[in-house]
Amino acid sequence: MEIRLRIIALLLVFGLAVSPVWAQGQVVRFVKKILNDTSSAATSKLIVFPTLGFAPETSLEVGIRTFSLFYVKGDTVVNRLSEINLNTFVTLKGQFGALLENAVYTDQNTYFFLGKARYQQFPLLYYGIGPATSKSNPVLVNSVYFQIRQRILRKIRNNWYTGAEADFQSIQRVSFESEETSNFELPVGGRGSKTTGLGLALVYDDRKNVLNVRKGQFLETGILWYQPGFGSDFKYQSVVLDGRLYRPLGRPNRVLAMQLAGTFITGDVPFNNLGLIGGESLMRGYYLGRYRDKNVLATQAEIRWLPFGFSKRWGGSLFAGLGTVAPSVASVQLNHVRWAAGGGVRFLFFQKKDVFLRADLGVTREGTGFYISLGEAF
């Protein structure tokens, strides 16, 4: 079981029965104010709350998560909902991590800025490369890792966007726990690397609310070239495909969401830049990086009740997915396709902006994973 449980301390509604003593405190009054927020959709929202977490490779985590949700110029008719999300944490082992994600639209949705920046100094589990790696005795990888990936896209016609994207990754001070105690063979980039990729992206996006899509489509095709001339230690090429479809099922509160994703890499690529399966978005239930290789193919579908018909704020979901990795597309084998399934609960966090808090439990043949986050997985 992947024991990475993040508890949003601000939202005591997920299991804390408020006693009369708590009800008199400043914290609970603040919680009630947030949970009963009825400000208009046009109002920009900035919320900061603490998080707690635990993982075997990091022990106890304490962090701060900050969300900013807004419509440019307060225009909820034409402009789309923009999101900036910052999550930072430290652990009892002195480790640190920070992730900044953005999906920001300008006025009239003319420009779309989509990207992330990540810094982390904590160990990760490395199971090896390929579709048939063993789940037992993973190697613990210690490193200092930094990434910034950004797409700057301009609308060219209707809902079509195109533009440039860049990706910089650096992994330094790398050590594999079993390196000195066995015949462990270091993967490519096992002693550290820096890679810089520049490329182009083509996106179709008619989603109104990227955190909770009730109807719409999203399609992204991107290609990146990593070259020594750009400052990269390795030379390779990466192509990413991501297609998503959202449709109501009979009622506005019931949504079918589907996704097809692929990563295709050719060349000499370091292990930390390979395509991954797992995590809180794709193939929930698997540890992020449980399977990695040059090529990733995955698909998932989810039915969402947002909210249930008998409730104004509580909802739920059921999801399932299939995915695999391979060194080449031609070498994909059906017996290496993995499955993941599960379900979760939803709570309408921002009532006017139609944004839910989700708690998902993903089940795989190797165990389970539990995730709490704001907004849907895809």
Rank of each mutant, 00 (worst) to 15 (best):
I156Q: 10
R157K: 11
R157P: 01
N159S: 08
W160Q: 02
Y161F: 15
T162D: 08
A164E: 09
A164F: 15
D167R: 08
D167S: 13
D167Y: 03
F168E: 06
F168S: 11
F168Q: 11
S170G: 11
S170Y: 08
Q172E: 12
R173W: 00
V174P: 00
V174M: 05
E177H: 12
S178V: 15
T181W: 05
N183K: 11
N183W: 07
F184M: 11
E185F: 01
V188G: 03
V188E: 13
G189N: 04
G190Y: 06
G190K: 07
G192S: 10
K194S: 13
K194P: 03
K194Y: 04
T196M: 15
G197Y: 01
L198A: 12
L198Q: 05
G199T: 06
G199Q: 04
L200A: 15
L200C: 12
V203A: 00
Y204I: 03
Y204K: 03
D205E: 07
D205V: 02
D206I: 01
D206N: 14
R207G: 00
V210P: 12
L211K: 08
R214I: 09
R214V: 09
K215N: 13
G216D: 02
F218H: 04
F218D: 00
F218Y: 15
E220Q: 14
E220H: 06
G222D: 02
G222N: 05
G222I: 00
I223F: 14
L224N: 07
W225G: 10
W225L: 15
Y226D: 01
P228Y: 04
P228T: 06
F230W: 09
G231T: 09
G231C: 07
G231F: 14
S232H: 07
D233A: 07
D233L: 06
F234T: 01
F234P: 03
F234I: 01
F234R: 03
K235C: 10
K235A: 14
Y236I: 01
V239W: 11
V240H: 11
L241H: 05
G243R: 04
G243V: 07
R247N: 11
P248G: 07
L249H: 05
G250N: 08
G250C: 10
R251K: 15
R251W: 14
R254N: 14
V255Y: 07
M258C: 08
L260V: 15
L260T: 06
A261H: 08
G262R: 02
D268S: 10
D268R: 10
N273H: 02
N273K: 09
G278Y: 00
E280L: 01
S281H: 08
S281F: 04
L282F: 13
